[in-house]
Nucleic acid binder design. Sequence first.
DNA 1: CTGTTAGCGCATTCAT
DNA 2: ATGAATGCGCTAACAG
Lengths: 337, 337
Amino acid sequence: MNNRMMTLKKLAELSNFSVSTVSKALTDNPEISKPTKNKIKKLAELYNYIPNITAKNLKEQKTRNIGVIIPNILAHFFAKVLVGIEKEASKQGYHIITCISDESYDKEVKSIEMLANGSVDGLIISISKGTFIKKNYKHIQSIIDRGLPVIQFDRVIDEIITDKIVIDDFKSSYNATTTLIDSSCKNLAFVTPIHNTSVGTRRLQGFQKAINKASNIESSKLFVIDDYKIFAKDFQGYLQSDTIDGVLASDELSAICAMNLIIGLGLKVPEDISVIGFTDGILSENSNPPLTTVNQHGQELGLLAVKQLVNRINQNSEEYKTTIMNTSLIKRKSTCK
Amino acid sequence: MNNRMMTLKKLAELSNFSVSTVSKALTDNPEISKPTKNKIKKLAELYNYIPNITAKNLKEQKTRNIGVIIPNILAHFFAKVLVGIEKEASKQGYHIITCISDESYDKEVKSIEMLANGSVDGLIISISKGTFIKKNYKHIQSIIDRGLPVIQFDRVIDEIITDKIVIDDFKSSYNATTTLIDSSCKNLAFVTPIHNTSVGTRRLQGFQKAINKASNIESSKLFVIDDYKIFAKDFQGYLQSDTIDGVLASDELSAICAMNLIIGLGLKVPEDISVIGFTDGILSENSNPPLTTVNQHGQELGLLAVKQLVNRINQNSEEYKTTIMNTSLIKRKSTCK
DNA sequence: CTGTTAGCGCATTCAT
DNA sequence: ATGAATGCGCTAACAG
């Protein structure tokens, strides 16, 4: 904003009408006569008048901004969700203010504080790993108590009551595991870098359920990734001493890493070991061999989140609901058959 | 914003002080006495008072928002830049409002219009492919004329005078090509999906310059990608009838695609064909073989962009300058030696 | 040390 | 059909 900016007041002086007449003329209020409207509109056009959005926001007690907090924009899934959010928000006339928590509790708290001072009309959030580990959710609850509409997606805190949009992690994981088992894998491994999150937990449960239900499983092994280098050593060590013929990973990157480690040992994917990952991203599509993945439909998820949030902003009446999105298994060459 | 929100006015009534006294007390103005400050601060704490940022912004004629327009968040480079932008902006107390142009001129125009109504104090932009093709830059110039500070990065329009941050595309490309030539590649191909952009043009020029300077080049071939499927056919067709022993791609994804096409034909990377890409992202790091790439240091670029923009917001005096960022070639296994 | 007043730019109610 | 007055929530110059 600078002194070049045209305002209603200046326009009023220039046109010899009052501020309120100018305001009404520009919003096509029927109280104002045609000729007056025309004069004023022409003048506004000439001087490139643009209504000051901040003043409007103050007057109307809203911002037309949506806050978005995601753990990691470099993960394809979150990037895709963001694309969906941006598209729908833009369509509905909302800006999005993006904060990246970088999986850190502290950054998440700070971001929320920065957003909850009236900067946004609502918030879409996926919880950071750090917060799950810390198990401290006060920062989320406090903004809800303050009356800010919140939508949680993907990584959600069950105890915090808001609208939620998740995928059916348990079922997706169960189905993916079953796919491995059906292609006669008997020695399975579950690889996860998000062990502490809601999502990670459910995916592991789905994996275990499928294994328990199957009759001919010989072994199963859990690899929790904190550090990829340590994981590489552990995983390859295990491969050399034990048998694995099927891997399910709870995200995309760890699936690709596992596959590369397998290939690095001279083993074949999928002939020796089948691999399935979560999130259908650029990595999965372009790996060699291309990776069979659980498609989480991130973009639609983002779209839905905005729709639900805008709904909630406009009418705060409905029951809070959890939407479970379908996934689909995209079969590529990292699995047999 | 809702009626639950505490305001200075309500706080004034509750405390029996005037609004201005309350305001001053809460900003630790030395005019106010210790006991009064304490009383008021305690009350503010008790009622969970948070200053309304919109009102503050209106008063101070600024938004503490930075607009960011990028062509495609799914490209690792832009995601990385965004990470840098978010980090530095957050550090400096700015929000970022992210718009994705999706390489479209129309969306870029619309985004700029949505941002330039006082929603942001400044803008960081990388131009869309569509805009380069259309060669219509009025929407950019108009916001600059209106006095909004703008930083262009990576894909920049030379004719539009703003601060710019770019990488040395020509030199990076020249060096990468030279690396191929030095490892005795004689039949080179340049693969590019961004042929129309400033960046794409300069990278091609660097490639050509290196070829012209070399003495023993036997052939060189340009592949412009509009559609990846068509490219796949063309490229593999060429591979089958002609010789290529070195590929430089102007971005990450096309490099990976080229490599996969090569491997798909039973050829070996790097033994038969060396491949180098631009942008050091997740794809390059995790491909098989891992890809030699030009690292563009996206995060630092984002950081710098914010620093420069904030500088420009605070003092509109300096000369406009173009910062050229260094790149580095990360050698991995897709090239010989 | 505290309060009164004004004003940021806009929309709107209430006169005229 | 037009204008005056009010208020959104905040800061700050000025008065006392």
